[in-house]
Amino acid sequence: MSMAVTPKTTSTSSRVLRYIGFVAMPLIVIVWSLIDLSLGRELVEWIPYLASGFSMNILITICAVTLGTTAGVTLGLMQLAPFWFVRLPAQIYVQIFRNAPALVLIFATTYIFPFEIVLFGNYLPFPDWVKAVIGLAILSSAYIAEITRGAVLSIPTTQWEATKGLGFSRLQALRYVILPQCVRRSLPPWMNVASSMAMGTSLASLVGVHELMHAATDASTAVRRLDFTIIAYVVVMAAFFTLCYPIARLTRRLEQRFNAG
């Protein structure tokens, strides 16, 4: 009897803790800057600069995940194609880039691509943040290809046979029967990829993209106070945490719901 009660009480207390999780980090920043007002004033001055950095993180994330999803779904379906000359390139691509560290890919795209492109005689700038987007998109496309492949394979083969019996072509079966079910199944792992891409954007600071990490480093070198350095990095952590923690919570909830039903 006591066995049945113990997990329940821990789960209610941990539920309370999880809700604290949403606000804990920003709360630390606010309380600390209220206690030490000179620090708070300094921080308020730098917040717009830090926010401009964080908007870059969000921009890179959205672009990289959109690009990566489009490419990844295509590659994942290519891996399942009946012809080897379609299947093989996709498999090689996924195997190479799934194992690559995000940082290596960001370095690769930053240093290999030129800083401007010539298009019909016009010089178009090719900014570093776009290169970071491509680097992260390559990585996420490899992950998403695997997720897509796994999701399609998880659909029972009897469904394929049923569509064949109903006179669907392979592509029609994919479009109308298999993929709609896959979307639901691959949503939680896709959200994991999206959140790890959001965290990966901080790596772009190492190739000189003006994002949150970079902004925090700028701010702390400009102010030169140890307590400001600490609070600047706490703000960075708080920003990423308040972005990624809700995604992680939602992912877990979707997983549970999927496992239950």
């Binding site: 999880r18 999780g21 980090m25 959140s195 965290m199 990966g200 954007t201 901080s202 790596l203 600071s205 190492l206 990490m213 480093t217 702390s220 140890l226 350095t229 600490i230 990095y233 706490v234 960075v236 952590m237 990423f240 945490f241 990624c244 923690y245 992680a248």
Partner: peptide, 19 residues
């Protein structure tokens, strides 16, 4: 666990090293 899973490793590293 929640903090370390939901913040970038690079930020944790810079925080540890600089602070």
């Amino acid at each position: 666990v929640e903090l370390t899973r939901n913040t970038p490793t690079l930020v944790q590293l810079m925080f540890s090293f600089l602070v």
